[in-house]
């Protein structure tokens, strides 16, 4: 359903993305893992053109968008097909919870207020916040904020949901409630692209796991392929370092040779 071809992005002299290709079928869950600075967040932000790639093609529904010179109309169209959940939530601070969720419906999609209210209320019930409709973001916990962020993205019924490290800013205790909500979304058959550090989540729910490092896709495949039958050394190294056992491994054996 979504085909992404040859995405390049450069910040000054720093080549962040060096030709990324990805095909996502309808209903698929794709997780992108990798070390900080590998370009995974930048890649995700390229998909709704919050970041403008220097080169590349994104096609959704047979509509092909050349990312280098997209027209305003194309940018707007693409953003209407997608929705993003941010690491730092980015809830509209001056709007209540329900207003946050309604905004994309009433303003961007010209839905009638009553209808939008019903949709928003329903989405907020799904994420377990039906009793916080009139609260302001500042009155919520991190986990609650992120669940509003998810409801806001779900409400517009996008073709693909983009998650940018949705649990990375949360207290460890609150990560569970957000992942739980995301699991529920997976069950509904939504198409999702998730940048995450939650390896267990990636392993269990993904149809496709993508490991990125230094602006390229190093390895990709099913969770089984990437996590169990890892082919590349770099992936193996990364997975070992993020595993809970790493801390207690005897370190003498894994010292890298100094050149």
């Amino acid at each position: 359903m979504i085909e992404i071809k040859n995405i390049h992005k450069q910040f000054g002299i720093h080549h962040v993305l060096k030709g990324i290709n990805l095909t996502v079928r309808k209903g698929e869950v794709v997780t992108i893992i990798g070390p900080s600075g590998s370009g995974k967040t930048t890649f995700l932000r390229c998909l709704n053109l919050l970041e403008r790639p220097d080169e590349g093609i994104i096609s959704i529904h047979d509509k092909v968008i050349n990312c280098r010179f997209p027209s305003k109309k194309e940018v707007h169209w693409l953003r209407k097909q997608t929705a993003m959940v941010f690491q730092q939530y980015h809830l509209f601070a001056h709007k209540t919870v329900i207003e946050n969720v309604m905004e994309g419906l009433t303003i961007a999609r010209k839905m009638r207020k009553q209808d939008a209210y019903a949709v928003a209320e329903n989405e907020l019930r799904k994420v377990g916040l039906q009793d916080k409709l009139n609260a302001y973001p500042s009155q919520l916990s991190g986990g609650q904020k992120q669940r509003v962020g998810i409801a806001r993205a779900l409400a517009i019924h996008p073709d693909v949901l983009l998650f940018d490290e949705p649990t990375a800013a949360l207290d460890p205790e609150l990560v569970g409630e957000v992942l739980e909500v995301m699991l529920e979304i997976v069950k509904t058959g939504a198409t999702m692209i998730v940048v995450t550090h939650e390896m267990e989540f990636a392993r269990r729910v993904s149809d496709q796991v993508v490991f990125m490092d230094e602006g390229v896709i190093v390895e990709q495949g099913t969770p089984e392929e990437v996590f169990r039958h890892t082919k590349k050394d770099r992936t193996r190294q990364f997975l070992r370092r993020v595993s809970p056992e790493y801390l207690f491994e005897p370190k003498e054996h894994i010292k890298e040779p100094v050149i």
Binding site: N48, H76, R79, K80, F86, E103, I107, A108, A153
Partner: peptide, 12 residues
């Protein structure tokens, strides 16, 4: 991030 969030849900 406020602007980006607005863009991400389709606001012009």
């Amino acid at each position: 991030g406020q602007t980006e969030a607005a863009y991400s849900i389709g606001l012009s």
